[in-house]
Nucleic acid binder design. Structure first.
Lengths: 338, 338
DNA sequence: ATGAAAGCGCTAACAA
DNA sequence: TTGTTAGCGCTTTCAT
């Protein structure tokens, strides 16, 4: 392989096929008017030369790209992966690709990332979360393309929103435990200043506990988000030592909840008989493990599906009216809670 | 927000700052020679206009992009996510971004994806696996940029390789069980014609069993890859019914192994006392669950780290010599096997 | 159904 | 240190 030789251009293909570059361009654009034989000849010539269209040049000239920029906190998270998967599927019929970036749960990193992504001139942006730096907001507002914030219900949206209230969802969980006469409830989450959705869940926990007149001080901050299974297990060990009379634990995600469950199992503490455990996110591990883990399903793929749908509508209509679609997370009662 | 107004260009910034477009260009290029005051004036003008560099035009003119294309089978997989994470970190110092695509464990999809990615003229390609369609091979060979195949040891590499033998790794696992006097060993994997690494692991299983003179017919094909925890659990139920005297099960990944473990727990079958279970990949769930799951660690982030290193070296030297670096997967003995 | 001319926004190359 | 000119590879627009 000669890495130094330049890639062939449309002109090279045109010469080889005995046509003008313009005809080659048409031959590569589906649904355009080229003689079938000419088109076949052109494709043969292209294949022989190893020609691949240069979308850099194509995008520059036509002033439009064929992709949508998407930001998620972490590439390694089944929930966000499901959202991205559904988004990808929903945009495929329109020929739109996903350009994916991750913020590592950090709004500063998000700012850098979004600027990088905007340089590539996406047709739209789908971001996770509704909290951004001031500059990120300005970048998004100046982008002149539709923006969708997801997985959250920001009080002052940049543009469109498809999400839910993380705080509200956890309040439902607290209500459930209180109904079951459990009152000494703890919350295991991450450090509060990075993962804004985790922070909202923690806020929802505190609000609900106070509404019920209960002690909302059993709060474990298990480290920088995302909280892993291991950190969930460590947090549970800590909780069992410092507050052994705890009756129920709500974890910021199913992953930490599974860690907490495993810690109980290693110490011979029966779940749910001695302590109830709940998570968040409806990850597969919580559905399969024994006992299965009570959780909240925020419908990640539904978020992606509806974001794609909304985008298609907005791109077609050119409308400027911000749309907010609320997702309704479902409480899934499983074996880990009485 | 006015989505119809065009984005400002470098010329707009130049006029506002009272300089030529070329000076604006320089002001945005780190380490180039512009008067500090001029640069400050330009950045202020840019910020005020909401200017964001157009990398489409920049790339076209300079004939170089600032990204590396990476393909992985699935976005939702902690192993590949770790590889991508390490790759991202390793390329950041050089200012290279990752352009990520996923193949859904399908070589046809890989072909479409790689053509899409090549249109954007990446500086290099990092692909997962060493099996491709004939056309994919041609595309990669004609790309005129370095290519790294990972997670595999292809017999005829396209270019560079950083990987390991999936078959060999599983053989080590079989040897371990045989040493422990377990002979009735089963393998749970996916359908054989999509995930080539899963197929290699299955091949390794069969080869090792035959080498030991053992029956290699306890093979469960649990569906199209990737095999989920749920599918692992279902496969285990099937295995317990059809071959109840099985002494050990090797699963194509820790996720299916965890499903198999859960199935045993639901049926009151003691692991490892009644049956040993092993997985592959060293996923977090297998380290945390009770009992923890014996596995093989293929060092996903090591693969990413070394791919980034190799890329930097090759991009600097411009060398054409294909390099093959072998990773040595480690057997991790845990509680799920005797 | 095909071609010719022009130019998208930026930067390499050269000039001052 | 800054400016001028030209052109990257493609597609829009207009012409035939």
């Amino acid at each position: 392989m000669d890495k130094l030789r330049k890639n062939p251009t449309m002109t090279d293909v045109a010469i080889k096929a005995g046509v003008s570059p313009m005809t080659v361009s048409r031959a590569f654009k589906p649904g355009s008017l080229v003689n079938d034989q000419t088109r076949a000849r052109i494709h043969a010539a292209a294949e022989e030369l190893g020609y691949v269209l240069d979308s850099t040049a194509s995008s520059l000239r036509s002033q439009k790209t064929d992709f949508v920029a998407v930001t998620i906190p972490s590439i390694n998270n089944a929930n966000f992966a499901d959202t991205v998967g559904a988004l990808t599927e929903g945009l495929k019929p329109r020929g739109l690709q996903i350009l994916l970036g991750y913020t590592n749960y950090d709004v500063e990193e998000e700012e850098r990332l979004i600027e990088q992504l905007l340089r590539r001139r996406p047709q739209a942006l789908v971001v996770t979360g509704g909290q951004h730096t001031a500059r990120t907001r300005r970048l998004l507002e100046n982008a002149h393309v539709p923006v969708i914030e997801t997985w959250d219900l920001p009080s002052t949206p940049v543009d469109h929103v498809i999400g839910f209230s993380n705080a509200q969802a956890v309040q439902v969980m607290v209500d459930h435990f209180v109904e079951k006469r459990l009152t000494r409830i703890a919350f295991i989450g991450g450090d509060v200043d990075r993962d804004t959705r985790g922070l909202d869940r923690r806020r929802g926990f505190i609000a609900a506990m106070q509404r019920h007149g209960l002690d909302a001080t059993r709060l474990i901050a298990a480290g920088p988000p995302p909280i892993s299974m291991r950190e969930g297990a460590e947090a549970m060990v800590h909780l069992l030592e410092t507050a052994p009379d705890t009756e129920a634990v709500i974890c910021v995600s199913d992953l930490s909840a599974f860690g907490a469950l495993s810690a109980c199992q290693r110490r011979g503490i029966a779940v749910p008989d001695q302590i109830s455990i709940a998570g968040f996110g409806n990850y597969e591990v919580g559905a399969i493990c024994v006992p299965s883990i009570t959780t909240i399903d925020p419908s990640p793929s539904e978020i992606g599906r509806r974001a794609a749908e909304l985008l298609c509508r907005v791109l077609d209509s050119g409308s400027n009216l911000p749309i907010c679609e609320e997702i309704d997370p479902r409480l899934l009662l499983r074996e880990s809670s009485i």
